[in-house]
């Protein structure tokens, strides 16, 4: 018997005809249908090709044009950052309910697999946050998928939290990361996927991406659970 990670209702395995036909194992979803229904998935063919924002068309969104056409970074986001997602992050990240990390694990792993990345890495959290929260929420989201630590935070004191800064502050924020000692040898000529929880302005994940590119990665993309 499996219970919904968010509301503890009992969840039954999904019988998917396609999966029965190709003999893949039945998957038991982590969320019940009611909870799942509160989240809005972003189909890749209805999103901004650069940042992954949910939109009708597949042209570059206004926010992304600000970064400039030549800016090479591409991000894929799985869900809209709607009320349900906000509540999820407030319970998981800020309240610190570590159990909730499993809610989107399968989605995240599926997206990692289709990216065909050689190296999967995550955005680090600073030491102080790690101390109080007790876990890195991004590592939690991908479960047991092996991730490589390519980045570390440069300053121990962040000052204002990201959520307290305004858009302009965030867009012009200085590089918060540096490469970990083994990073360069791990990523030269490799496909690197950088995972973060939420894509907001794209500033943070772009900082990480530019470090990876400078270290010789052949391909760098982002994957975030939410966009908003």
């Amino acid at each position: 018997m499996t219970q919904c990670v968010l509301c503890e209702r009992v969840v039954a395995p999904v019988i998917d005809l396609k999966k029965l036909l190709d003999f893949s194992p039945l998957t038991v979803p982590q969320l019940c249908q009611i909870c799942q229904g509160r989240f809005v998935a972003i189909p890749p063919d209805q999103s901004c090709p650069k940042c992954g924002r949910h939109q009708e068309i597949t042209t570059i969104c206004p926010d992304c044009t600000q970064w400039g056409i030549d800016e090479p970074f591409i991000n894929r986001a799985l869900y809209e950052y709607n009320e349900a997602m906000k509540t999820f992050f407030s319970d998981y990240k800020f309240r610190g309910d570590f159990r909730l990390r499993k809610a989107f694990e399968a989605d995240m792993k599926r997206a990692i697999n289709v990216s065909h990345a050689d190296v999967v890495t995550i955005i680090p959290v600073d030491e102080q946050t790690l101390q109080t929260r007790g876990f890195n929420q991004v590592v939690g989201l991908v479960g047991d998928y092996p991730v490589v630590a390519l980045f570390e935070t440069q300053t121990t004191n962040k000052g204002k939290r990201q959520s307290e800064r305004n858009r302009h502050d965030r867009m012009t924020a200085p590089q918060p990361f540096r490469l970990t000692p083994p990073a360069t040898s791990l990523i030269a000529g490799k496909r690197v996927l950088i995972i973060d929880d939420v894509y907001t302005t794209g500033r943070t994940i772009r900082h990480a991406a530019s470090l990876a590119r400078a270290a010789g990665a052949s391909w760098v993309q982002g994957l975030t659970l939410a966009h908003g």
Binding site: G96, F98, R99, G134, F135, N136, V139
Partner: peptide, 9 residues
Amino acid sequence: TTLPNGAIY
């Protein structure tokens, strides 16, 4: 409920 640092909550 075991956190990566070994504590439970």
